[in-house]
Write a protein that binds this DNA or RNA. Structure first.
Lengths: 166, 166
DNA sequence: ACCAATATGATGCCGAGGCTACATTTTTTG
DNA sequence: CAAAAAATGTAGCCTCGGCATCATATTGGT
């Protein structure tokens, strides 16, 4: 291993950006890159709960009940997986379940489901308004929606309102 | 995953009727809901690779090298985690690494990084064009970008081209 | 009422992606 | 050149979200 020619210490370029740690030891408001990744990871951990909550609400609305097996089929996973997820929903206080009778959302769960549903529609509508084909809009929205913050959501709503009156 | 054998009918409620599906109980051409979830899950497993590839390319461009520790700091994870991810990158043929010299993208890795970078910019630009504040646009794009398909991306490009000439 | 079909539940396994802690190697420095 | 510092690597542990399989409970049909 050629002992790497005595290039200047620490590569040629200066550290591009203060890595979350500025001279001031105080809490940086973290608008940093690492902060964004962390946030994206946090959001990801909510995604599954959101999907389940939305689906359960939908099943209740359209079929009158939401049994674990139905949920599993709709999501394309095995029932074991669905049941584990439902267990997590219960643990998080978003749902309750009565065996063979179905899964029920708590008040908090209903609230979440409603928010998710609204957000989903908004995302799809915005994509469509931008010119994304229906098929792709539905598909991509499924993944995108979880990452749309309230601020962005508000912007979406304004955009659509504008577009409609234009 | 071969589609599990038809889980046969169930329960009292009638099939909520799969939307997007005509009366013909045909082969699962999979524009179905389960299909969309599966696709979203597939996309998710690519996200980490994409983030690393993009970051490595960026570090090379701005710092001349991309060492595991730098990557870890930029992503806000420990170096152990970064190294495990880099191992996966190597396994997938996207990168190579020479200890203490940094990580290098393969041709395929470079290609991926370029695509990801372009897509990222496009997503941020579209969000901004729609009226999302810069801060939120950057944050949300970090998660959204991975779910934007080529078709949607093309629509984004057209939308921006239009917006500019309007 | 009974038995088969169906739903649910409990395990055990896997890989991904985090972490901490410790070990090793390289680079920098005194 | 030797010691300190830094970077890399390894191992063990955790959670999560998949899977398959086996066990149990419920429902429904005859």
């Amino acid at each position: 291993m050629p002992p790497r020619p005595p290039t200047s210490p620490k590569s040629a370029a200066p550290k591009p950006a203060a890595p979350t740690r500025s001279p001031q030891p105080d809490m940086p408001a973290e608008p940093t890159q690492a902060g964004r990744f962390e946030q994206a990871r946090r959001v990801q951990s909510m995604a599954l709960l959101e999907d389940y909550a939305e689906l359960i609400a939908d099943l209740h609305a359209t079929a009158g009940e939401a049994r674990a097996t139905d949920i599993a089929r709709r999501l394309g996973v095995t029932h074991a997986t669905a049941i584990k997820a439902i267990t997590r929903l219960k643990r998080e206080g978003l749902a309750t379940a009565r065996p063979y009778r179905g899964v029920f959302l708590t008040e908090e769960g209903e609230h979440l489901a409603a928010r998710v549903k609204t957000r989903h529609r908004l995302v799809v509508d915005v994509l469509r308004a931008i010119g994304v084909p229906a098929e792709a809009a539905e598909q991509d929205a499924e993944g995108i929606e979880h990452h749309v913050s309230d601020i962005t959501l508000a912007a979406f709503a304004r955009f659509l309102a504008n577009a409609r009156t234009t």
